[in-house]
């Protein structure tokens, strides 16, 4: 049982390491930030347009 526990632990660590190794989480957050910035600024000008009608 001890052995299998150890095995499990090792394998989790490897997976974790590996995930971190090739993860693109930072990229996802970055592009989502870019997208939100575009949405917010576009609607800001759109409402400025509406307010000037």
């Amino acid at each position: 049982m001890g052995k299998s526990n150890l095995e499990m632990k090792t394998s989790t660590i490897t997976t974790k390491n590996k995930e971190d190794h090739s993860s693109l989480k930072g990229t996802l957050y970055f592009v989502l930030f870019v997208g939100s910035f575009i949405l917010v600024s576009w609607f800001a000008v759109f409402f400025l347009y509406l307010s000037r009608i």
Binding site: D20, G26, T27, V31
Partner: peptide, 13 residues
């Protein structure tokens, strides 16, 4: 935007 930032992230990792 995605390609370039992904290149940064992969290289840094």
């Amino acid at each position: 935007a995605f390609s370039i930032f992904a290149t940064f992230e992969q290289t840094a990792r």
